Amino acid sequence: MKETKYHSYVVGELPEGCKLCVNGAKLVLFTTGICPRECFYCPLSPWRREDVSYANERPIKNVNDIIEEAKIQEALGAGVTGGDPLSRIDRTVKYIRTLKENFGKRFHIHLYTTGLLATKENLEKLYNAGLDEIRFHPDIFNPNSNIFQKEIENIKGAFDFEWDIGGEVPAVPGQEERIKWYAEFLDKQGAKFLNINELEFSETNLDALLSRGLRTVSDESSAIKGSLKSGLTILEWGEKNTSLNYHLCTAKLKDAIQLKNRLKRMAKNVARPYMEITQDGTLKFAVAEYENLMELYDLLVNDAKVPEEWLYLNLKKRRIEMPIEVAEELVDAIEGDVKFYVVEEYPTWDRIEVERIPLL
């Protein structure tokens, strides 16, 4: 077992999908929020627990949205997720085919599924569409349920196809023996890897995790206390007792590495000339806000003599965007109720604002 430069831990090799993911090169293709299971640790936000589709943060209205988002990200692959993508199998297959047709066979696509809907027919559809890697997440923490037994039988059927097969489960403290059982099952079937994710609190799983006595490692972190240790225990055991590759994906990897690298890839393709790209891949620029934007725009161009190419009238957010240096010169020169700010945003479709500092 060794620690990677991505703040994660690995036994053997990283799965192909993970290699691209840690570099921010995987499009997150959320095909539906519908899922046949209700896992107590599911972190999915309320608005995504419906039959909705997203390419990263962009809502999908048609397949062109997927293509556009992949181009902006300069994606080299996609991770198909949900919900359970197999809940809307024809939509999922359509999206996979679209990506392969537009970006070629080398565009690597992996998919997550519970296994419950992984019938022979559905698996064949995915394989024929060009899926490269499939990751199963059965209900291993409820081994006596009928759902779990069906999932296990369906997983066995996936080995009739020539693609990479693995498992992916959260490191739930106290459930190490169940994860070990799953690792042995995968190893016996001939799977390639088992990914283990550090468990985290979210808005939707908070009560369920607290009721089970789970707590965060600190007030500043969403990671569950004991989850990382649990995952490391599995990797140490797995290295000695199975032939699987293992990857322990930490909360720090997701926040400090994967997301940042994806933002950097996107920022250079969406940044306007007046925007600065920060080390974290966010966009930094200045804005002016005023009740009558057209009046303000006319004032800046005709009276303050600001070149029009330095200004962007953003009617949707009701502001005028500009270089920070320009705003710093204008803040003392423009009288009235005009307010100037330096803002920092994600370069994503939803342009989430992460910081706003008033210029005084």
Rank of each mutant, 00 (worst) to 15 (best):
I140F: 12
G174N: 05
D187F: 04
A327I: 02
F159D: 08
L14C: 08
V63H: 06
R135G: 11
F201S: 07
K264M: 11
L99M: 06
I196T: 00
N154T: 05
P59E: 04
N64Q: 10
S53T: 02
K192S: 15
L14N: 02
L29G: 02
R319P: 10
E220I: 15
V28L: 14
L116F: 12
Q175G: 06
G33D: 08
G166H: 09
N64C: 15
L86F: 03
T92W: 01
N292D: 14
I334A: 00
S222R: 12
V169T: 11
D298W: 15
C21Y: 06
V169G: 03
V93S: 00
S87T: 05
L283F: 02
D207I: 15
S45V: 15
T233V: 14
Y9D: 08
K5G: 13
A251P: 13
T31I: 07
M1Y: 07
F185W: 12
D51N: 08
V343M: 09
D65K: 03
A171I: 06
K100N: 01
L116C: 09
L311Y: 00
R48D: 02
A223Y: 05
I179Q: 00
P15C: 10
L299D: 04
L248V: 14
S8C: 06
M266F: 01
R58C: 03
K150N: 10
E184Q: 14
D132W: 06
M294H: 13
T278L: 01
V22M: 10
R88L: 06
E124F: 07
D160K: 10
I357K: 07
L259G: 15
N197V: 13
P347D: 02
L299M: 05
Q175H: 09
L131C: 09
E203R: 08
Y290C: 11
K284N: 02
L232Q: 04
E335I: 12
N195F: 01
Y274C: 11
S230N: 08
D298S: 14
I155S: 00
C35G: 04
M294E: 14
F201Q: 05
I109D: 00
L235F: 09
E329Y: 14
P173T: 06
A208P: 08
L210W: 03
R37Y: 15
L300A: 03
S211C: 15
S243G: 12
P59M: 04
V80P: 02
V11T: 07
L232E: 02
A327R: 03
L315P: 13
I67W: 00
E69K: 00
R88W: 02
N302C: 14
Y95G: 11
R48E: 05
S222A: 13
G77P: 10
Y297D: 14
K2C: 11
P15N: 07
L248D: 09
V354Q: 01
N292W: 07
E184C: 14
L199V: 13
I257W: 09
R212V: 10
N102E: 09
L296H: 02
K156E: 03
N292H: 08
G33P: 12
N261L: 07
V93L: 00
E344M: 09
D65P: 13
M1T: 11
D51K: 08
N245F: 13
W181K: 12
K284T: 07
T31V: 13
L330M: 03
F340Y: 05
T348C: 12
K188Q: 05
P85W: 11
R215K: 13
F103T: 11
E184H: 14
E168L: 15
